[in-house]
Write a protein that binds this DNA or RNA. Structure first.
Lengths: 153, 153
DNA sequence: CGAGTATCAGACTGATTTATCCGAAGTATA
DNA sequence: TATACTTCGGATAAATCAGTCTGATACTCG
């Protein structure tokens, strides 16, 4: 299982990254997203509902329906998705679980964890979806390929 | 819930840190550890059994029994405990959940996550229990105090 | 309007994690 | 040997997470 993020959150991040790479104004069907990213259809359904309620994506029912980003990929960072899915405080709390850990009574790794957290937060909020998407032109396809290859084998 | 570590692992880290602060050669009862650290007795029981099997602590049954570190606090780092409880590969895998993420086909945050992972690994293996314990003389007691105060209030 | 399509919403199942309980087994002391 | 004490280990329950299913709702187009 993943570190840091729940499965729901992983799927959400993948799906949003996927939508960010679509031409602006277009919509993608749940069916297509799930199949391309190899995510269980019904599970992704719920995740996308959460993202819709969270204002990250917009949805449209019926024929010609589907999902699209609610805002431009230039205005969304990964932390927005994490907050919408795993909640606001998923990065708070003492990493060793001491309930009273804080600046006055720090746990043995308090300062070091603080530094690690900063690196993680930077990772999540420094770049927009647009910038992240650019860096991997063609790579998502490669990932998807090796992915489905692994499924068949 | 915690990032990175399971509840079992958190408890294990707390308990081992606690044992590292006891005079060498002494033993502590499960009852006392659980009460001091405010950890569910029966659950900590299981965790300490795991640590015993993992060679982190030694146990002794019966009167005058209890738990103690298997080695000197100078020879144990936190990563040893994490490995014994959460398993070897708890820090592996793509943080976004892409199964095919790697050096050839990196996910959008692959390099940044790599850096974060290094910071975390350093945190876990750079200092020994002895060094970690020294830094917080008296502080664990403070933590425990505010902890039980919170329980009563 | 009616048919077809696609998301929405909630209930449901299964797996894993967390937490609890209790009898068995080992140890010290008298 | 008897007794008290403490960990060991398996069974079980509760809670959370992951994944599945189904009917309702909303939209498009003929």
């Amino acid at each position: 299982m993943s570190i840091i993020f729940s499965k729901s959150c992983e799927y959400a991040l993948q799906a949003v990254l996927y939508l960010a790479r679509q031409p602006e104004g277009s919509r993608k069907h749940l069916r297509e997203i799930a199949s391309d990213l190899n995510i269980p259809y019904h599970f992704l359904n719920k995740v996308l509902q959460t993202l819709t309620r969270g204002g990250i994506v917009v949805s449209r029912k019926g024929a010609n329906g589907g999902f699209a980003l609610a805002r431009s990929p230039k205005e969304i960072t990964l932390i927005d998705i994490v907050r919408a899915v795993d909640g606001e405080s998923s990065l708070d709390g003492c990493v060793l679980g001491f309930p009273a850990c804080g600046e006055q009574t720090p746990c043995p790794v308090h300062d070091q964890w603080k530094r690690a957290k900063e690196v993680i937060l930077t990772m999540l909020q420094k770049k927009t979806l647009a910038e992240l998407g650019k860096g991997l032109d063609g790579k998502l396809e490669l990932i998807a390929q090796s992915l489905s290859a692994g499924k068949e084998g």
